[in-house]
Design a protein around this nucleic acid. Structure first.
Lengths: 192, 192, 192, 192
DNA sequence: CATGAATGAGTCTTCATTCAT
DNA sequence: CATGAATGAAGACTCATTCAT
């Protein structure tokens, strides 16, 4: 066991510090609206060498996935909570509202969430777990006739990313997020 | 008067030929999945000098807008037809189905359709005309209680692009387009 | 003889008009501080084709010389007047003051004035005539011991352009022109 | 401490070598009469990548200033020596003669010397130090009535560059440098 | 003579990635 | 492991000049 047994990663203390610093800077860049994630620039801002960044994240996509991992953890927590909801439809709505909010705040996360192919197995696993939770909610809700039958969990995931896309394309920030999500939720009900 | 008075553009015959060639090559590149639209490469493929491309299209965006202009014309024709439909809701559905189909076939067109800022005034004009047609349909459909009240024409345009995004993010081509569009159309009805 | 017998150039009326328009625009560009004299841009601003500009002025230098020709005429007029001055030194001072003023107002003219090689014979001829007038003044002034012996007319021309350069390099416009010219005039006297 | 602790620059050995190589090539290009300083061409001639040149010198002007920095150091050394001269006027003459010589040998240096705006603070600092030294000499010389009162150090700097310009514009190399400098020095004395 | 579209060599600049230190 | 200098392919864009109309 490592001296400090931090989060279970087998990293030397300084390596872990560098990795965290890089992730932090990358997050800041995204927050500033720069989604190019240039590894050179990030290295400079993080005060580490480019090589260090490349050691930890062999390419831009790996960094992006790492960045979204913690978002994914939050999402999974919410998904588990939603699964415990008595009212499946309410749980689903709550979960999607949460997911949309997170995706809007972190475009990189949205990209990973909607991507059909992942760079790291861990990402695929998290995505699968999320889909499983949604699928369960969908199934339960369908028993009460509240959800259409031609929609699966991955459809919902993609549709949500589509909604996020629509919200973002507006000039007025996230002002329309609530309404657009309402359209999606209503659209998921069986056609009249 | 010019000998051939072709399509009313005030271009010399050879200039028009070059312009068309460039557009043609650009379309092919997009069809091949390369949406970078590198003016250098396009010039080479079109067999014209770089300067020629730059003369006709000062930047990549201008080229993209020019490419989508014809798509837009088709869309406007359909919009006018839909406006004549007795059944406003049916007309709207038909129009959105058409728009989604076109956007899926031409990602550049989708991008222009959803963009909040245009490079050329003509694009903005076409977008406005499309929005007007949709707004009219929405209004008429709302009279029969078929459409929710918190949605405007530009919302519909963005939501449609969101749907397009969702369809495209799937691994199975446009297979889910019908279902996803169904979700949108249903979602546009007033909440139960 | 041509119908309008303008300035003796054997140009058709429209050709002469175009030539004048080009020169006018070029002058304006220089006045605006753009001394790049791009033939393309000038053609556009003058409302003529590039080819027309090239017909009249095969290259940038020819245009520059043409531009300075009228300045040169003014300068020659002043030189003749100065030559008539009883007081040779006073005449020289007056002439140099005039030349400096003109050079400061027209950098292109300054460039032609100082250049050691001309594109057109006419320019060389005017330059020679100017130098002759200055040489005469120098000679007459030297009789009264007012001018050093190691300086010829072309030296004076170059030194004046040097002064012009010094004035222009200052941040405060032509504010120091008078003083700098004073330094030159004093420096032309025999060393004490 | 680095093994060789070369000239105090905080550069890695290979980086310093490359930087020197680039400067060397740039100097050669200037010596060959090509003052365009094209970073691409210099990179090729120096046998380094373009990026290397851009890393050391972000733009042409930075390179030019770096090139003139060493010239400036020589000039400052001479200025300090001149300041120690008993005879202020003699010191000034000596210093200006030296400066003219250097400016004539290095047109880039002349350009930096006369420029009203510098890209690097270090250049401005050196220029200011040079002006200080000249100002001191002027003041001391003025006490003996040897220098006119309407001339400051930066005027002298500009006038010297003007003289350099005049010398260079002649067809016969630097043959007239001595005489032209004599005119300036004489012109700096109070008017009779 | 006039036109202006076309040309394409030439220039600047960025940035992902490697590798010597 | 960390560093960051070096690399150089790649791309954007300009502009002097030509020549078909």
């Amino acid at each position: 066991m490592t001296p400090k047994a931090e989060q279970g990663t087998g990293l030397r203390a300084d390596a872990a510090r560098n990795r965290a610093r890089v992730l932090q800077v990358a997050r800041e860049q995204l927050a500033l609206g720069d989604d190019s994630l240039q590894l050179n620039a990030i290295a400079r801002l993080a005060g580490v060498g480019v090589g260090t960044v490349y050691r930890h994240f062999p390419n831009r996509h790996a960094l992006r996935e790492a960045l979204s991992a913690e978002r994914f953890q939050e999402l999974l927590a919410e998904a588990r909570a939603a699964a415990d909801d008595e009212d499946a439809l309410a749980g689903l709505h709550r979960l999607l509202r949460f997911a949309l909010d997170r995706a809007l705040h972190d475009p990189g996360f949205a990209a990973v969430l909607e991507s059909a192919s992942d760079a790291e197995a861990r990402t695929s696993a998290m995505k699968a777990e999320y889909d499983r939770a949604v699928a369960e909610l969908l199934d339960r809700a369908r028993c009460t006739g509240a959800i259409r039958h031609d929609i699966a969990a991955d459809d919902v995931r993609r549709l949500l990313c589509g909604i996020e896309h629509a919200v973002r394309s507006g000039a007025d920030g996230s002002a329309r997020a609530g309404v657009y999500l309402g359209v999606l939720l209503e659209g998921l009900r069986p056609p009249r």
